[in-house]
Amino acid sequence: MAAGGDHGSPDSYRSPLASRYASPEMCFVFSDRYKFRTWRQLWLWLAEAEQTLGLPITDEQIQEMKSNLENIDFKMAAEEEKRLRHDVMAHVHTFGHCCPKAAGIIHLGATSCYVGDNTDLIILRNALDLLLPKLARVISRLADFAKERASLPTLGFTHFQPAQLTTVGKRCCLWIQDLCMDLQNLKRVRDDLRFRGVKGTTGTQASFLQLFEGDDHKVEQLDKMVTEKAGFKRAFIITGQTYTRKVDIEVLSVLASLGASVHKICTDIRLLANLKEMEEPFEKQQIGSSAMPYKRNPMRSERCCSLARHLMTLVMDPLQTASVQWFERTLDDSANRRICLAEAFLTADTILNTLQNISEGLVVYPKVIERRIRQELPFMATENIIMAMVKAGGSRQDCHEKIRVLSQQAASVVKQEGGDNDLIERIQVDAYFSPIHSQLDHLLDPSSFTGRASQQVQRFLEEEVYPLLKPYESVMKVKAELCL
């Protein structure tokens, strides 16, 4: 049975990233139509530049190519590739079939990587351009969430054990800070992308030097003109047959890092959902379990974690691919890159769409948070109580021993009897502590235990987050809708 299948058929496997999760716009960027249309555009740009620099290419040939950029006979191309065992030459023939007058000058002087690699770089750039505003929107939604809850005390956790208090907004800023680093890295790697350009079979530009009869300047002009037509500021000066596969490492490393950030955020949300302090959106008709109707599973956060793990592992592909590119190139890269580049971007696209949807509907339960604080705060307040007693004339050592005994009794009630923490009640009825009984409410005010959390939130948002989001103001209103 021949390899390949009808990918629109229910009898043929289709990647869930495309069929179930990723956005239509990201799927289109990695589609065959987008790819092969870009090949034709690159052939047109090459012909236009070659004509401008004096090669015998007519206006009629150029116009014929322009008129057929979208006229792609995919069936013919597939048949040609089956016959020739070469995808680029299959599309040269297919393009030439609908451009008979231009057929002889299509791909003039070029090698397969002229269309293959340059198209990949265009796709990487455009895919990054799709991700950047999506990530900015996630940051914006979380920034709104953090600002609104900047002063809401909550129990902090280290080692997932109760620690000092923080605020809900401050905790959210930990998430935002990681995503801001990801946004900066995505922008950097996007701006650092260079075009492969017009380089020939081993990167020496020998074929173009021959076409222009040894004119170095025209060869350099050709490279520059096509690079500018493709919208790049610069091209690699040095290439082998391909652009260095280190570029793929750079791009997928940034995406993998984004995956790590999203995994951490969504894990926190899942843990908070278990504590009943916070939940992701839950639709009115949504079913959490087929057997347990009360369940409210954090399905979206779980999906993000599941896909983020996949995204983090994909960076190993370009690392290994770059390491086995012998001399000017081997074909070890080809099949692998067809999979890992598309999957990385479709996965990143999915987790950003999902995280935006989550961040637009996060639900906080202040009463649950308050109750958990009441359970733990008495123990945390013991040092403040000791200091207040010393100020009232008591002995630190005597007070410490009193607190120690009462704390152990209260802990026994919590752990052995399943009761509430009654340390404060014990202190309130103990005559030894009568000098500070009137101060206990103040000493137990949760806001006095959150330090500068709310001020940190305000400063972080104003100095770091809002300036970073400013270039994306025009796209901030787009909502994230999930079908599944």
Rank of each mutant, 00 (worst) to 15 (best):
P471A: 10
A22E: 10
E473L: 07
A102C: 12
V189D: 12
E80R: 11
R137L: 13
H86V: 08
T38F: 15
K477W: 10
E79G: 06
H159R: 03
R245T: 10
Q285R: 04
L130A: 00
D441Y: 03
Y432F: 12
T167K: 03
A260S: 15
S261A: 09
K479L: 14
Q161R: 06
V92P: 04
R374Y: 14
S253Q: 12
V364M: 14
Q409H: 04
L130V: 07
Y13C: 15
M76R: 11
Q51A: 03
F327S: 03
R303V: 01
I386V: 10
D117P: 05
L440G: 04
T94V: 11
L271N: 05
A235S: 06
W175P: 01
A308L: 12
E220S: 04
I373K: 03
I403V: 14
F433Y: 12
A77Q: 13
K246V: 08
R14S: 12
E462L: 01
R40F: 00
P133C: 11
T244E: 07
K367G: 10
P133Y: 06
Y114Q: 00
M181G: 11
D32S: 12
N353G: 07
T354Q: 14
E464S: 13
I237S: 12
Q458S: 13
V457W: 15
M316Y: 02
E401M: 01
L55C: 11
A90W: 12
M26R: 02
Y472D: 11
N353C: 06
M26C: 02
I287A: 07
M316E: 13
R37M: 05
A2H: 05
F212V: 12
R270L: 10
P133S: 04
Q409V: 11
D223N: 00
L124Q: 07
T119I: 04
M278S: 06
G231W: 09
I106S: 03
Q286C: 14
Q177M: 05
L183E: 01
E25W: 05
P293W: 03
I385A: 12
M316F: 00
T244A: 13
C173W: 09
S151P: 06
D216W: 01
H437A: 09
W43V: 08
A102D: 01
S207M: 02
D117L: 03
K264E: 01
T119E: 03
K479P: 15
L222H: 02
Q177G: 01
A2E: 13
I373W: 11
I351M: 04
